[in-house]
Design a binder for these strands. Structure first.
Lengths: 237, 237
DNA sequence: CGCGCGCTTCGGCCTTCGCCGAAGCATTCG
DNA sequence: CGAATGCTTCGGCGAAGGCCGAAGCGCGCG
């Protein structure tokens, strides 16, 4: 316990992300869905045996939580904080590494999920629009929706009661590609859920290669484009 | 180049932080000062030879930049984005790991530097005060100082011209201990520099053990306490 | 009830890499 | 112009850990 060779907590959590196979799994989980060990094995490109070990370590380290259901074991990211850290680290990596061209990079820059909320240009534009118009205002440690903002969000199907029940939507993630904040937390989650639910957003098919963006890309449907324009005057790219 | 076994950029940057000795070096560099290889060797607890290898990797990976001066080689974090990522990852680690009691943890929670700007309770309180009073207002991708806010900041000795010259102070770091944003970017840097310069803040002595907080803790002087109360009505803990 | 499937555990191989001491450069100082 | 200092490079050692195939285990289905 008081092992003098023990890595500090920072090194320990970094080590969990430092393995290529584990990093691919975490990236896949950034899509927000709970995935089985088998699915994660495929995206990571290793056998089931290897995957099992990796997932045990990730769970032990608190990055992932497991939910057994029948003969499947579903894994998802443990919390918003894990997602935010991965997003931030991914952003740093993208900034530092030679600009490697992801096959679907352009689509992902346009709109994607960051665990359970909206990111990419669309997520950033939404955040800017809401804050710039005063529909969201800064409060202690985060954002709160002004009455006018609440009404407009509810009109688009967002369940604000459930968003309010969340601890607080203090966490505005720093965006991977745009280097600007987008809306995370309970409100971000409810927005994404509502708009996917009413068909404004649609998940784009996962890529088969080990792409870090697999399962994260979303697209705005024509209905969504219209809806966002009507509700917020938002002209999506 | 197209090595199929190459780790993704995320795993690569995580690996740089995943070694205990390197993590200690990075933590020490979060104090914002440029440190020599020898100083980093001492804080990391390894020999000069080992340190040299680590620093070469960190520089190669873009986390650190080197500045040779005489027979010393000074190292500092490469950018604000590196500092933000370390802070975020450290926050996740603190949240996940069993609450380990750092010797100077309480002092560091009160006020510390996050690379070149103010963090801890003081940094968070300042951010909240400035945004809550409307002295800072949200603009596209960050914060801008309102006229009233500019005047008050200038009155405390902050060089706003230099802050304006910075790319943008879009980056409000997520705080390690408080899990709330504090003020980073060009403005954060100028504030910390100005207040240290006029004796409002003082660096506290570095700890001798390999503490992750070494060289980061700062204290508010009586003059600083008075000054912050007069300028912003800020009652520091 | 027995088979199939998903997942984990075990054992063994092998690469990676962190570590050090010794030697080699460079810079500064006496 | 040596000698000391700061740092890097080299060579070699050892531990950590990532990988797999095979075997084991639990759950659901036929």
């Amino acid at each position: 316990m008081t092992d003098p060779t023990a890595p500090g907590p920072l090194a320990a959590v970094a080590a969990l992300m430092a393995d290529p196979a584990r990093a691919r799994m975490l990236a896949a989980l950034m899509g927000g869905e709970a995935l089985t060990a088998g699915e994660l094995a495929r995206v990571a490109g290793v056998t089931a045996a290897t995957t099992s070990g990796h997932l045990a370590r990730l769970a032990e380290g608190g990055l992932v939580v497991v939910h057994a259901q029948g003969r499947h074991r579903y894994h998802r990211l443990a919390s918003e904080h894990v997602a935010a850290a991965i997003e931030t680290l991914g952003g740093l990596a993208a900034r530092i590494a030679p600009v490697r061209h992801w096959k679907h990079g352009e689509e992902a820059r346009a709109a994607r999920l960051c665990w359970n909320h909206l990111a990419g240009r669309l997520g950033v534009a939404l955040h800017e629009r809401l804050t710039g118009e005063g529909l969201l205002r800064p409060v202690s440690g985060g954002w709160d929706a002004a009455p006018e903002g609440r009404a407009r969000l509810v009109a688009t199907g967002v369940d604000l009661d459930r968003a309010d029940a969340a601890p607080r939507f203090a966490c505005d993630c720093m965006d991977w590609s745009e280097r600007r904040p987008h809306l995370a937390g309970g409100l971000g989650r409810e927005i994404a859920a509502a708009w996917i639910g009413r068909g404004w957003l649609r998940r784009l098919p996962a890529t088969e290669d080990g792409d870090i963006l697999a399962r994260r890309r979303v697209g705005l449907t024509p209905a969504g484009r219209r809806g966002l324009k009507d509700a917020f005057g938002l002209e999506a790219a």
